[in-house]
Amino acid sequence: MIQPLSYIHPEAKIAQNVVVEPFSTIHRDVEIGEGTWIGSNVTIMNGARIGKNCRIFPGSVISGEPQDLKFEGEITTAEIGDNTTIRECVTINRGTKDRYKTVIGKNCLIQAYSHIAHDCFVGDNCIFSNSSTLAGHITVGDYVVLAGMVAVHQFCKIGSHAFVTGGTLVRKDVPPFIKAAREPIAYAGINSVGLRRRGFSTEEITEIQDIYRVLFVQHRNLTKALDLVEAEFAPTELRDEILSFVRNSNRGVIKGFNQGRTSTL
C-alpha cells in the first residue's frame, strides 16, 4: 500500500505488499522486499537493499552518502536483512570503495538515534540500544548487544555474543562471548546471561569462562596466555573462535580489569 503523499521513484523495485506511509521518499536505485513497512518521513536513498518484513520508523535515513572525505561517488550499497527493525531517526550510510557496502544482518533491532557509518558489517540478531554509534569499517558479530550511547571507534571488531554496557567508548576490539564495561573499556566477565538465553550449555559456558580467566583474570602476558590456552584446553569451536579473534586483532583487544595489579610473565 503506497500512500499518495509519499514519493517513490518509478524505477525503484518495491515488492507488491510493501507499505509506504505519507511523506516518505524512496530514490531510484532502491530494492525493498515483501512485507516491509516504511513509516512516515523516512528517506531511502540510492543503494538501499532492504529485505523482507522489515520495519523502518519515522525520521530514519537509509543509504545516505558516506560521511567520508575520500568518498568519490562510487556505486555502493547499504543492505538490511530480513525481519530487521530500524527505529526512529536512525542513520545508515552506504559503503565506500573499501568494502563497497554497509551490511545489517537479519532479525536485528537498531533503536532510535543510532548511527551506522560506511562499510560496517553487522551480523544477525544484534540489538543496538538508543544512540549507539558505529564509525566506519567496523565489524560486529552475531547476537551482539550494545547498550545505550555506546560509541565504537573506526576499524574495531566486536565478537559474537558480546555485550557492551551503556556509555562505553570502544577503542579496542571486543572478543566474543564477553561483557565489556568501564572507562577505559575492560573485560567485565563473560556474557553468561545472554549465552544461557541462546542455548549454550553449562559445560560450554564453563569452558568460555575458564579460557577468559587465563586470558584476562590471571594477569598474564597476553601472548603467553594465548599459548597456554592452546596447550591446556582441548580444541573446540569455542576455544578456536576465541583464539582466532584475539590473535587476528589488528587494533588489539581490550584489557582485563587490572585493579591496580601489574601483569606477570
Rank of each mutant, 00 (worst) to 15 (best):
G35V: 05
L134P: 03
I32C: 07
F23M: 07
F128D: 02
G141V: 11
G59H: 00
T84Q: 05
C108I: 01
G51Q: 08
Q154K: 06
V229E: 08
V20W: 14
Q218A: 04
A117G: 08
S263G: 05
A225M: 13
F245G: 03
I56G: 04
G123P: 05
T102R: 08
G141L: 12
V217M: 14
C120P: 04
G159R: 04
G252A: 14
L238I: 15
A180C: 13
Q259Y: 12
V18I: 02
D119V: 03
H161F: 14
A147S: 15
V246E: 03
K101Q: 15
A225D: 13
I50F: 10
K97M: 09
I56K: 06
V253S: 00
I32R: 07
R94S: 09
S249Y: 09
N107I: 03
P58S: 09
D173T: 07
A234P: 10
I50W: 06
F233M: 05
V152G: 09
R28W: 00
A234R: 12
S201G: 13
V19N: 09
P175E: 01
G39M: 10
R171Q: 02
F57A: 14
A78N: 05
V246S: 07
D98E: 13
A48I: 02
P10K: 13
Y143G: 07
S114I: 11
V145F: 11
S249E: 08
I104M: 00
I211V: 09
E203R: 15
Q111G: 00
D142C: 05
S60T: 00
N250Y: 04
S60H: 01
N250K: 15
I92K: 01
I2G: 10
R28M: 11
F163N: 13
K106W: 01
S114P: 12
G47M: 01
K97G: 06
A12F: 10
I38Y: 02
Y212A: 14
V164T: 04
Q218T: 06
E237P: 05
E204N: 12
W37A: 05
Y113H: 03
I208R: 05
E204M: 14
E88M: 00
Q209S: 15
T139E: 15
L195K: 11
C54A: 01
G81S: 13
T202E: 15
G260W: 08
A48C: 12
G194D: 12
V253E: 07
A231G: 09
N125M: 01
R261S: 11
I38M: 01
F121V: 15
V229D: 09
V90T: 04
I38R: 02
G33D: 02
H219M: 14
C126N: 02
H153T: 12
V140T: 03
A117F: 02
E230L: 08
F121S: 03
V253F: 07
F71C: 03
E74A: 10
V214Y: 08
D124Q: 03
N93S: 15
K101S: 11
H9Y: 12
I8V: 15
I75P: 00
Q259N: 14
A181C: 04
L226C: 12
V61H: 01
E34F: 02
E204Y: 12
S160Q: 11
S129G: 04
S114H: 06
F128T: 00
V150P: 12
I50G: 05
E21C: 09
F71G: 03
T223I: 08
P66F: 09
D98F: 06
A180D: 08
F121C: 13
L169P: 08
E21Q: 15
T36F: 11
H161D: 06
A15I: 13
